[in-house]
């Protein structure tokens, strides 16, 4: 009885992980090299970047919004961390905090305009994305980025105790995100607002501030992901965050977080991030063209939102 209740409550979550596992198992049988320790590490590093962006995206989507500015927040962070102060190890002591403060600030601007001035999230964050893109292109005059510092490369590519640094960082942030969502006041307020912001307001919750900070948080995780991405790739270039825009939203959708807001779980987005990278790996392993990958992305997102919609209908 109790197990059944728990299963029902976490049905979305379980499905997301099953899907990721199933995909993984199928391809491992077909291509034995796929499941090698090294390849799994590569997949995990890929997932970590998507997963970190998806943290803030999950928060924002729980409020019923969306953040379409993560693409160029990531690019800005990556370009800056490789160029500020020559991009060396020493410069990172001040450049990393500076970058994160800046991306949080951009996020807060998004959030303030959306919450206090009632701008539609799609337009506001899209506009921010275009402004950041335009600003970065204007400042750099379209010049390519630079190489990442040694320290960044270690964080992005190397392992500690046999586990990639990226996974350690992702794990830490996952714990933080879960604590925020389910053990702290902020999480309760977030879910209440996503379900019914009027009730939240009547309950004495500072609705606008909570919404604003969810975008600020998204800025933080996007900035962090950008810094780490530069290390993982080894260099930075304009537009390097573009793919992550879709991937982060897709991870949230696949993870069963409702696009209407009000319900969701970051652990689902984690499964979503894995699903996306496994899919990417499969298509690469099978030597399928890029077009198939793109289509598969679309289909899997459509499939998961359709499944979620059907479940809502059934439970009614």
């Amino acid at each position: 009885m109790k197990g059944n209740v728990i299963f029902k409550k976490h049905q979305n979550l379980i499905f997301s992980y099953l899907a990721a596992l199933l995909l993984f198992a199928a391809i491992s049988v077909y291509k034995p090299g796929f499941a090698s320790v090294n390849h799994i590490k590569v997949l995990a590093q890929e997932s970590a970047i998507i997963g970190i962006v998806a943290i803030g995206q999950t928060f924002v989507i729980i409020t019923g919004g969306i953040d379409l500015s993560v693409a160029w927040m990531i690019s800005i962070a990556a370009i800056m961390v490789t160029r500020l102060g020559g991009g060396g190890n020493e410069a990172m002591i001040w450049s990393v905090p500076l970058i994160l403060v800046m991306t949080v600030f951009f996020g807060l601007v998004n959030g303030a305009c959306i919450a206090y001035l009632r701008m539609p999230p799609i337009v506001m964050t899209l506009g921010m994305n275009i402004i950041l893109q335009g600003g970065l292109v204007a400042v750099t005059q379209g010049a390519p980025g630079s190489y990442a510092s040694d320290l960044l490369v270690v964080l992005g590519q190397k392992a500690f105790l046999g586990i990639p640094w990226l996974l350690w960082i992702w794990g830490l942030f996952t714990v933080l995100a879960m604590l925020l969502l389910f053990r702290m006041k902020y999480g309760r307020e977030l879910f209440a607002i996503g379900n019914n912001s009027v009730v939240a307001n009547y309950s004495g919750i500072n609705v606008n501030a909570v919404i604003m900070w969810s975008y600020g948080f998204s800025g933080l995780t996007a900035g962090l992901a950008g810094i780490l991405l530069a290390g993982k790739v080894g260099s930075s270039y304009l537009g390097m965050g573009d793919a992550l825009q879709f991937q982060s939203i897709a991870a949230v959708a696949i993870g069963g977080t409702s696009m209407m807001g009000g319900s969701g779980n970051y652990l689902g987005s984690v499964a979503g991030a894995f699903t996306i990278t496994i899919l990417l790996g499969i298509l690469a392993a099978l030597n399928l063209p890029y077009g198939v990958q793109k289509m598969a992305y679309g289909l899997i997102v459509l499939g998961s939102v359709l499944m979620a919609a059907r479940k809502i209908k059934n439970s009614r």
């Binding site: 879709f246 939203i249 959708a253 890029y290 198939v292 990958q293 289509m295 679309g298 997102v301 459509l302």
Partner: peptide, 17 residues
């Protein structure tokens, strides 16, 4: 938003093919 987000990628994928 999410529906057309997905179909955008499906359309774009076919374009690549």
């Amino acid at each position: 938003f999410i529906v057309t987000f997905a179909t955008w990628y499906i359309g774009g994928g076919i374009a690549y093919l």
